[in-house]
Design a protein around this nucleic acid. Structure first.
Length: 360
DNA sequence: ATGCATGAGTT
DNA sequence: ACTCATGCATA
């Protein structure tokens, strides 16, 4: 309920890739719609019905949506849709780099992970004037996709109706290209190998006493061309396989390189008394929109019958659920992305278990 | 660990 | 307007 919004007057916008956690803050567009937490009428009505029926019900209503709409608005808070997109930004430039929280406990580790040993304390992974980190990564993925034969809009190797096999990888030309790229198709592309690596990675990381966030930041110190820092989120998702197949493949070599370097340095211990912390302090934080359960259920129902609603449909749904159109659009986008993850996290009951079968 | 969001690159 | 990789904020 109640989302607090901050309107910022800053103006700079980062058009740069977002690769450095804490480095700079991109501009945030907030969705300033007040979520009403009271169950909305329609939500209650379907609340106890089974999914199949719910889907149909929602689908039907989706069809005649626009005819008669929300007549259930509560005068109480009336989402006064001010349609101004509030932007938050943080300044960024000149702001003291990362050094977020919990760095003390892991300081040594981070330090240890610095291959050069010098590096004025990995502080300035900042600039990265040249090559935007993921520009490179993207290049990799994309060339991968091209090599793999193409992929239609839907994404990865779209052929393979049943499941997926990245059969295209075995094409001679592709194989050569992949080899040239330093990848071993059968080794780095095999889902089971990815799963195994992710598991090994996690265990060894923990053994080293390094957190996911630490790994992310340490990556910048590896100084691999085009590789900058990553967030805790991404490391976490890699370990839990909640990334797309291609993303997993692209990240594997990088994390593998880090792991090897980290373990190598773990041998010859070293110490370094440094570490300025200093959190940037006072910045407008972006507030995350939270979609209430009833609305979420409706969205899921719509998604079941139409994963890719048209712009108009989205607008209709948004109005009906009293959500901003953009919020609804993004929800659908994210939902689609979810389906593409190696480990469908649609079931919030999967955490680091050994999945016997992949469901993608 | 995961929800909502941004942005570059495509289609 | 979409896909994809990724991140901040948060449960």
């Amino acid at each position: 309920m109640t989302m607090s919004m901050y309107s910022s007057t800053d103006k700079m916008k980062m058009s740069a890739p977002s690769c450095f956690p804490g480095r700079y803050s991109p501009s945030y567009r907030s969705s300033d719609q007040m979520r009403r937490c009271m169950p909305n009428p329609s939500g209650d009505i379907f609340a106890g019905i089974n999914d199949g029926i719910l889907s149909r019900a929602e689908a039907l209503s989706a069809m005649d949506i626009g005819k008669h709409q929300a007549s259930h608005v509560h005068p109480s808070q009336m989402t006064s849709q001010m349609k101004h997109d509030v932007m938050y930004h943080h300044h960024s430039m000149g702001a003291p780099p990362q050094r977020p929280l919990q760095m003390h406990p892991t300081m040594d580790q981070l330090d240890m992970l610095d291959p050069t040993g010098s590096m004025t304390t990995l502080a300035p992974i900042s600039e990265t004037p040249l090559t935007p980190t993921h520009q490179h990564l993207h290049g990799s993925y994309h060339s991968m996709n091209h090599m793999m034969g193409h992929h239609h809009p839907s994404g990865l190797s779209g052929h393979s109706a049943g499941h997926h096999g990245h059969s295209a990888v075995h094409h001679p030309v592709i194989t050569a290209a992949v080899a040239a790229a330093g990848l071993h198709p059968d080794t780095d592309t095999d889902p089971r190998e990815l799963e195994a690596f992710a598991e090994r990675f996690k265990q060894r990381r923990i053994k080293l006493g390094v957190t996911q966030a630490d790994v992310g930041k340490a990556l910048a110190n590896l100084k691999l061309p085009g590789v900058g820092a990553l967030s805790q989120s991404t490391i976490c998702r890699f370990e839990s396989l909640t990334l797309s197949h291609n993303n997993m493949i692209a990240l594997k070599p990088i994390l593998q390189a880090w792991l090897e370097e980290a373990e190598a340095q773990a041998k010859n211990k070293r110490r370094d008394p440094d570490a300025p912390s200093v959190l940037p302090a006072g910045e407008k934080k972006r507030k995350r929109t939270s979609i209430a359960a009833p609305e979420k259920r409706s969205l899921e129902a719509y998604f079941a019958v139409q994963p890719r609603p048209s712009g108009e449909k989205i607008a209709a749904i948004a109005e009906k659920l009293d959500l901003k159109k953009n919020v609804v659009r993004v929800w659908f986008c994210n939902q689609r992305q979810k389906q593409k993850r190696i480990v469908s996290s649609v079931t919030p009951s999967m955490t680091g278990h050994g999945s016997a079968g992949f469901g993608y």
